[in-house]
Design a protein around this nucleic acid. Structure first.
Length: 576
RNA sequence: GCCAAUGUAGCUCAGUCGGUAGAGCAAUUCACUCGUAAUGAAUAGGUCAGGAGUUCGAUUCUCCUCAUUGGCUCCA
């Protein structure tokens, strides 16, 4: 038996769970039961529909098995023998999985108690090495992840070597849940959804809208600095546009149904690209004006399956921080490297470091010259290398119209969300017959790249809330400081201070409530206000203030000028 | 969309084995004038997600719909 790592423990726990399920439900058919990043699952098919009560019973039986020190023993069969055995037991899903293994290969099985499973291993020596186990939830999952296949019942659980490690894990999850953007969105009054508006459609409240607006201003200024120009394009376009782009044939299920205006069909845009292309087509283009970098905070609407919606991270109406780069083949490599660098610099400005790139290559069914695909892929790879990143390659995972790099960022509880995307498009330039006049005086087809640095404003905002646990840095905070008068006697002084701070461009409020100082501090902290400025009789007499900083705690009495400078400096430096 | 769970006041949640609901926080008003994480009192706030059925009577039971949550699939 090899070293005992956490995956081995969890994988073995999955087997123990399968054994317990088999004890309870004789007709069960097993699919697979792997370890995951945080636990394990097993997929089953059976007559009985599992309930949360069943989970308790299964867990009870598992715990009994753990204490019985059941041994895991390995044995091998030829593929043929394995097939016969699985056939005898009517394990149809296992048989299906067996087909993935070459015919002449020997396959391994593991036995634990009465339960035998086709399995590569490795496993723990005996069940007592699984120190702690807990079943978490029941879910449906399609066989082989394909929605055309039957849906199996999946049980998720987790296991650890010791109970202490498991307790620590759940404690960590609890902490992460506290910074869930959906919870903070309500608590901090940032955004909401309404049943009357519809699922996946965000209502931005004043404070959320403030952060968004501040961010968008920053985004635009960074884009101008990096050689982009801004476009504004409409939210709807005629069917001819979407026919030309091909969206009506390959993306129709993602689009909302048409509306008729003057006997013409219009569609709400699911993407901005066709509009940007129309701008390009508004006149003849020369190689001299390339590369063109056109950016837009473009709001799009896409039909997402109801079960896929998730807070701000997966919605139906969202604003892409979109741009299209149209350039010559010679320019493409530098352009891509520059986009990736730009994107990473923006993420870094918000303190994100855990970002993982995924490269997707040419799928079986694809449009465009293979030589162009090669060149495009090469430029993507070089850009990743230049950025010093390691990327995972999804062979054949690209869209039919071009290869791409996506960046993924983790949310508070470890789920990865796709954000940045840099996608080549060999389809649209062809379909719209985009050309530029080259040095040779002839028409050439340009390269076109779609890119969204952050993905969407909504998703970025959701991830940002979790990143900061709701405590936005000074430059983004909707309220940067709150003045807390100790009694009503200081109200006028507080209002005067507020006017002075606001005149300097600082967003300052006064807590005018008829409450004690403790209550005012508590609220200010709950609202994650960076600075709490306390004024009592003493401060009023001396013309200064007492300061409490969100991070540094009590700073004592300060001169108003000094505090103003300190705050302005933090805003200016965009301190994370 | 599929599998499962959930839906009670602005928020967090009790409760009703069928007889139209309650707490804490928040809100409003009044009193207190207070020094670094909750001053006190009073008031107001709910078609118990929506619809249909069973019943003398449904927030409670049944069915349907909608929404949310955890997954699958998909994706910014």
């Amino acid at each position: 038996m090899s070293e005992l790592n956490i995956e081995t423990i969890r994988h073995s726990a999955a087997h123990i769970m399968a054994a317990a399920v088999k004890e309870l439900y004789k007709d069960v058919k097993f699919d697979i039961g792997p370890a995951t990043e945080t636990g394990f699952y097993y997929d089953f098919d059976m007559e009985h529909k599992l309930t949360p009560e069943d989970l308790k019973e299964i867990e009870k039986r598992m715990k009994k098995m753990l204490s019985r020190k059941l041994e895991f023993t390995r044995f091998e069969l030829s593929r043929k023998e394995a097939e016969e055995m699985l056939k005898k037991e009517n394990q149809t899903f296992k048989l299906e999985r067996l087909k993935d293994i070459p015919e002449d290969e020997v396959v391994s099985f593991y036995q634990c108690g009465d339960y035998v499973d086709l399995c590569r291993g490795p496993h723990v020596e005996n069940s007592s090495q699984i120190g702690a186990v807990k079943l978490l939830s029941i879910a449906g999952s399609y066989f082989r992840g394909d929605e055309k296949n039957p849906m199996l019942q999946r049980i998720y659980g987790t296991a650890f070597a010791t109970k202490e490690e498991m307790d620590a894990h759940f404690k960590m999850l609890e902490e992460a849940a506290k910074r869930d953007h959906r919870k903070l969105g309500t608590e901090l009054d940032l955004f909401s959804f309404s049943d009357n508006v519809g699922p996946g459609l965000v209502l931005w409240h004043p404070k959320g809208a403030f952060v968004r607006n501040t961010f968008e201003t920053f985004w635009k200024s960074e884009h101008y600095k990096n050689g982009y120009d801004m476009l504004y394009t409409p939210h709807i376009g005629q069917s001819i546009l979407w026919e030309t782009s091909g969206h009506l044939s390959f993306y129709k299920e993602g689009m909302y149904s048409s509306m008729e205006i003057d006997e013409k069909d219009y569609y709400v845009k699911p993407m901005n690209c066709p509009f940007h292309i129309e701008v390009y087509q508004s006149r003849i283009r020369s190689y001299r004006e390339l590369p063109l970098r056109w950016a837009e905070l473009g709001t799009v609407y896409r039909y997402e399956k109801s079960g896929a919606l998730h807070g701000l991270l997966r919605v139906r109406g969202f604003t892409q921080d979109d741009a299209h780069i149209i350039c010559t083949p010679e320019q493409i490599e530098d352009e891509i490297a520059e986009v990736l660098r730009f994107s990473l610099s923006i993420w870094k400005a918000f303190g994100f470091t855990e970002i993982k790139p995924y490269l997707s290559t040419r799928p079986a069914k694809a449009v465009g010259d293979p030589a162009k695909w090669e060149k495009a892929l090469d430029s993507l790879k070089k850009a990743v290398d230049k950025a010093g990143l390691d990327c995972e390659v999804d062979e054949g995972g690209g869209a039919f119209y071009g290869p791409k790099i996506d960046l993924k960022v983790k949310d508070a509880i470890g789920r990865e969300w796709q954000t940045t995307t840099i996608q080549f498009d060999f389809n649209l330039p062809e379909r719209f017959d985009m050309t530029y006049i080259g040095e040779d005086g002839k028409r050439h087809q340009p390269f076109m790249v779609h890119r969204a640095l952050l993905g969407s404003i909504e998703r970025f905002f959701g991830i940002l809330i979790e990143q900061y646990a709701g405590a936005f840095p000074m430059w983004l905070a909707p309220v940067q400081a709150k003045i807390l008068p100790v009694t009503e006697r200081q109200l006028a002084y507080a209002e005067e201070l507020k006017r002075n701070f606001r005149a300097k461009g600082l967003r300052v409020d006064v807590d005018t409530r008829n409450e004690g100082l403790g209550a005012k501090i508590k609220l200010g902290r709950n609202e994650r206000v960076p600075y709490l400025i306390i004024v009592g009789d003493k401060e009023m007499a001396e013309g200064n203030v007492s300061v409490r900083n969100r991070r540094e705690g009590e700073l004592g009495t300060m001169d108003v000028e000094v505090l103003t400078e300190k705050m302005l400096k933090e805003v200016e430096e965009k301190t994370v």
